[in-house]
């Protein structure tokens, strides 16, 4: 039946691949650009110290300035400091990397999932699709597994590319926190693509109309993703300590009192990502199962 799935979804698949490749290309370009910017910044720092100028974050201290003119010329190259300058310059890249890819995959997953059952029913072609020699269940399982697998591969590729970009965007502490990227790099995108797809399929099977299913899928996806994030971060074991003893790069969950905060140390980042992926997979599986029930029991 795989041949049939390919023939029917060939166009969609190609569009999805092209979109993801374009996004990866964009991340690649941004990443190189950020690297280049960082190199320029490091060079600037070198120039500053060579000229004996005060480093950018110094507020007091004694410096042996060799040339006041050079220092004042160099001083405002990066106004506001490292983080604000970088943030201004790479505003778009940061948005794309933190949210854009997640949104893109939510869209791609829903756009491929929503019509799967709904469009067949809308155009009555289910009467042909379900009366070839393949049982309705095998039809559903083959289609969902094949398309979900493809989407997860795309999500993984994009996630890895975004991970590469993210490392360029956080190197040298140029953006505030790694945790902002929690649900958009590495494994998370694959899980999100799967969830959006599953929601599209199931809501399409319930509502039996493609466009409403698409809208509902995006809405529920947002809720579920936020919920999953919260669950992973809040319900997994945290370390406690005081605000000052929490190691750098930790995700501070609950400001609480200054003496006792709960946090996830940076070392747990990868483990929590994996948990998020597993949660997304389990939820998506449950969603696809209920989508099957709706497909099986719905009117013909």
């Amino acid at each position: 039946m795989i041949g049939a799935v390919w023939r029917q979804h060939r166009g969609q698949a190609l569009l999805a691949v092209i979109a993801v490749l374009a996004l990866c290309l964009l991340t690649f370009i941004y990443g190189l650009s950020a690297e280049h910017w960082m190199t320029g910044y490091s060079r600037w720092l070198g120039q500053l110290s060579a000229a004996g100028c005060p480093p950018p974050d110094a507020h007091s201290g004694v410096f042996h300035v060799r040339s006041a003119a050079t220092c004042s010329a160099l001083k405002d190259r990066y106004p506001g400091g490292l983080q604000p300058s970088f943030g201004d310059r790479f505003h778009a890249a940061i948005l794309l990397s933190q949210y854009g890819l997640t949104i893109a995959f939510a869209l791609i997953g829903s756009l491929i999932g929503a019509p799967l059952v709904a469009r067949e029913i809308e155009q009555r072609s289910h009467l042909a699709a379900w009366t070839q020699s393949v049982s309705r269940r095998r039809w559903y399982v083959t289609k969902t597994v094949a398309l979900a697998s493809g989407l997860m591969v795309l999500g993984l590729v994009a996630g890895l590319a975004n991970g590469w970009l993210q490392r360029r965007l956080v190197s040298g502490d140029i953006t505030s926190s790694r945790w902002s990227w929690f649900s958009s790099i590495d494994l998370a995108l694959a899980g999100e693509a799967l969830l959006a797809f599953a929601l599209g399929v199931a809501l399409g099977a319930f509502l039996r109309r493609t466009l409403p299913a698409l809208g509902a899928s995006l809405a529920v996806f947002t809720l579920l993703l936020l919920g999953a994030r919260w669950a992973v971060l809040a319900l997994t074991p945290t370390s406690s300590g005081s605000a000052s003893t929490a190691p750098p790069g930790s995700w501070i969950l609950d400001p609480g009192t200054a003496s006792a905060v709960a946090y996830h140390p940076a070392s747990q980042y990868a483990a929590l990502q994996t948990v998020l992926l597993l949660v997304l997979i389990v939820v998506a599986g449950a969603v696809l199962l209920s989508g099957w029930r709706a497909t099986r029991d719905g009117a013909v």
Binding site: M1, I2, G3, A4, R7, Q8, Q123, R124, S125, L127, A128, A129, Q132, S133, V134
Partner: peptide, 22 residues
């Protein structure tokens, strides 16, 4: 079925291929 429903945007050749695959 009534009115011979098929997949509107597919080509005839593809429909036959789907028949072959399924």
């Amino acid at each position: 079925a009534q009115d011979a429903p098929l997949w509107p945007r597919m080509r005839v050749g593809d429909v036959l291929e789907i028949g072959r695959c399924m």
